[in-house]
Write a protein that binds this DNA or RNA. Structure first.
Lengths: 159, 159
DNA sequence: GAAGATTGAGGGCTCAATCTTT
DNA sequence: AAAGATTGAGCCCTCAATCTTC
C-alpha cells in the first residue's frame, strides 16, 4: 500500500464518520418532523414486524437494533405505554419475555416507512450509482463481518 | 432503479449503520485500552494539532469534531485539567476563546496515533481493496456534500 | 450458579437560557 | 441586539447490581 493509499484510507474513515453523523441527524429529523417517531422506535417496529410471529425476545431485539438489553427493556416499556407494542412472557421459559408488535404498532410502521425510505432514497442511495451501491454493500459486509468475528470489545458481558 | 436495487439500497444503509457502530466501539475500546484516551479527546488533539498555530476557536473546533459547542466547551475544560490543552482569550475579540494544544497534548497525540491508525488499518482499510476504498471515498464525499448542502436540521441555532 | 431480564447509577451529548463583549 | 461562549436541565445510552427462573 502506497503512502497515498494510506491517506485515502484515513480520509475515507473520516468521511465515514461525518457522513454517518449527518445522515442520521437528517433521517431522525425527518422522521420526528413527519411522524413524531424516534429513530430507535422505528427500528424496533421494523424488527418486530419482520420477525416470526411479530415478536422477539428482548436480547434478540437488542442485537438487531444495536442497543443494550437495558435500553431495549426501557424502550419497549415506553412503546407499550404508547400502545405500539406489548410484553408477553415466554410460556416455555419463565425467565424469557417477548416484545410483541400490536396492530397499532404495525400501522404506525406502515405510516412511517415511506418517510424513512424516502429519506434513504434522497440522501443516501440517491447520490450513488448502482455500481457504487453494490460495491459499498459488499465492502461493508466484509468489514462488518471481520469486526464481528474478531475477539470483540465485550458489550455487556454475560453476568 | 429496479426492485432489487432498492433492496440493495436499504440493505446497504442498514450495513452502514451496523458497521459504524461496530467500528467505533472497536476503536474506542483499543484507544482506551492502550492509552486511556476517549475518542473525542483524540479527535480534539488531532484537530488542534492540524490547525494554524495549534489553536482553534471553540465553534470551529466543534464543527470539525462534529460536537456541539457546549460539549466542546466542557471537553476542553477537562483536557485543560489534564494538561493536554489550555484556554486562551482572543486578543482581537474579547468574546472569542481559543483552545490551544500544549506540549503534553502534542505528545499524547503522538503516543496515541499509532494505536488509532493501526485500528483503522486493521478493521477498516485492511478489509478493502484500493479500488473499493477509492470508490467509497468518492461516494461518501458526494453523499456528505449533498446532506450538508440541503436545508439541514438546524443543529444548535444561532442564538 | 448460570441465563434472561429489569432497575439503579452515572456519563455523554444536546438544547435552551444566560452571560459577556461587540 | 447579535455573536461567541458557558452553564443548567434533561434525554439517551451503557455498565453493574439485582431479581427471578432454570
Amino acid at each position: 500500500m502506497t503512502r497515498e493509499d494510506r491517506d485515502v484510507g484515513v480520509a475515507t474513515w473520516a468521511l465515514f464518520l461525518r457522513t454517518h453523523a449527518a445522515l442520521v441527524a437528517r433521517l431522525e429529523h425527518e422522521l420526528d418532523e413527519a411522524r413524531r417517531l424516534p429513530l430507535p422506535w422505528y427500528d424496533v417496529l421494523l424488527e418486530l414486524n419482520a420477525a416470526q410471529g411479530r415478536r422477539l425476545r428482548m436480547q434478540e431485539l437488542g442485537n438487531r437494533v444495536v442497543l443494550s438489553r437495558s435500553r431495549v427493556s426501557r424502550i419497549v416499556d415506553e412503546m407499550a405505554r404508547a400502545g405500539l407494542a406489548r410484553r408477553e412472557p415466554d410460556p416455555a421459559d419463565g425467565r424469557g419475555s417477548y416484545a410483541v408488535l400490536t396492530d397499532t404498532g404495525r400501522s404506525a410502521l406502515h405510516d412511517a416507512a415511506p418517510v424513512y425510505l424516502h429519506g434513504i432514497a434522497t440522501y443516501f442511495t440517491g447520490q450513488l450509482s448502482d455500481a457504487e451501491l453494490q460495491i459499498m454493500h459488499d465492502a461493508l459486509r466484509r468489514v462488518l463481518e471481520y469486526a464481528g468475528s474478531t475477539p470483540a470489545p465485550p458489550k455487556q458481558p454475560s453476568g
